[in-house]
Design a protein around this nucleic acid. Structure first.
Lengths: 251, 251
DNA sequence: GCTAAACCTTGACGTAGCGTCAATGTCAAG
DNA sequence: CTTGACATTGACGCTACGTCAAGGTTTAGC
């Protein structure tokens, strides 16, 4: 007892195109091929097809399905790892939804579509490649995880803090003071303190590493994103210099 | 002040390939193109690029981003509809996760990776919404549990039985007999007996409810899935009529 | 002035899983 | 014999780029 390609496709609730595709990728071959080239499927193929479709509905990819069926159709191994992936996706989606909601809220509050960008460049996570090269992959990953793990409220508080700091730097730079002025140094200390609150950053003697702190200042100048969010390169240089002075004095 | 393609890609934390792609699809054109064909981007382009990347991280597609930026970069309209889609995805994922977990549990219980599809359309559980509306949630849930609770062997036996019944219906419909022919009526009785074996179905006087039996026949016609598994709408009508005749005579 | 390194260009394939023509051959019914 | 339904292979399309490939440009060092 066998069926034509269209018959079996209807039996299983799919399309003939799908069956041809499964044949092409070696997932389900016809049990017989007529002299005219027609594909015919028997009930063994039907059972396999139904298993394939079941697994597909569960979200597995075709290669994974092939593996699962080839290895042992009744062992939950493939499903377990697939479940992990699904949970990760769920997490990712949840975070993305939270981000979108937050962004909408901020837009409604009259803020610009720049919010995180102001923050960008202030910590090292935006200089991924360079930071990985200089301080190792963990520094980036840890800090990034930390940032992403913050709740909406915490996140917002962070944003406010960094926005304030950012605005104060701008003001100070515009006021024409020097990098070793009291104002600039107090800002450098706030910046240091803020960075100290982030985990995974290079430290020495329990404090944020001097090398890292100075290097970050250099990045601000080298990487124009920072300057782009402020008054330009001059401001970035001002910040860098103030940080360098602070580092020499206190680190 | 403008940057080369690689400079701006690093500034924004992306790649030159991405920038070329954005140029190709008209999402972000270079602000200037040198006589040698080199692309150059100014700070206006940088701002736009950063907005693009922000929206992209939120999961919007490139066309949607283009719309959002062209229409009004600070209106949350696009984000709202995107949020809806994200929530749907979240729902879908949650359901998929539940299904996978259930499947794993059943596999651990020694059950087979069964084809529920052969069975599709023949009982009411495939018409979930409608059956819940007409006969209450219990009818669906009970029957579904019953089905799922069957062991692999039982399940397979069931499959064979229902496949046979299904095939016989097809033959009878194709043979051109009437709904009140002996053949059709014997099939209706087999169908009735089979359904009688399922728990949770509406009954009256110890027998399967006439109303339910007739209604199920109507569903076969109304819901194209049934016809799709057979010879089309005509066959479904044949089955429905035979069932109705049987119900009048015996219920 | 030459050369190698580094950076630029366009072009095209690959990805996941089919949907959707297109051009053409085959089969069952009237 | 014709018509219509169904079959075949082939190839493009879709998302958002990654990844060569082949070849031109600029820059830095000798």
């Amino acid at each position: 007892m066998d069926w034509s390609i269209q018959e079996i496709s209807k039996l299983a609730g799919t399309t003939s195109r799908t069956l041809r595709h499964y044949g092409d990728v070696g997932l389900l071959e016809p049990s017989r091929i007529g002299s005219n080239g027609y594909r015919y499927y028997d009930d063994g193929a039907l059972v396999r097809l139904q298993r394939i479709l079941l697994l597909r509905e569960l979200g597995l990819g075709l290669p994974a399905i092939n593996e699962a069926l080839r290895h042992n159709s009744d062992s939950p191994g493939a499903l377990r790892s697939h479940l992990q992936w699904l949970r990760q996706e769920e997490d990712r989606l949840a975070r993305q939804i939270a981000s979108v909601e937050e962004t909408i809220t901020r837009l409604e509050g009259g803020e610009q579509l720049m919010a995180e960008n102001m923050f960008k460049g202030f910590d090292h996570t935006q200089h991924k490649d360079e930071v990985e090269e200089r301080w190792g992959k963990d520094a980036y990953a840890t800090s990034d995880r930390w940032w992403r793990s913050k709740s909406g409220a915490e996140n917002e508080a962070c944003q406010v803090e960094i926005s304030q700091l950012s605005a104060d730097w701008s003001t100070a730079a515009a006021s024409g003071g020097t990098a070793d002025s009291e104002l600039a140094q107090s800002l450098a200390r706030r910046q240091f303190d803020w960075l100290s609150g982030m985990p995974g950053l290079p430290a020495s003697g329990g404090k944020l590493s001097k090398e890292y702190f100075v290097g970050l200042g250099e990045m601000y100048v080298a990487d124009d994103r920072f300057g782009a969010n402020y008054g330009g390169k001059a401001d970035a240089e001002f910040v860098r210099d103030a940080m360098a002075v602070y580092a020499e004095k206190h680190l």
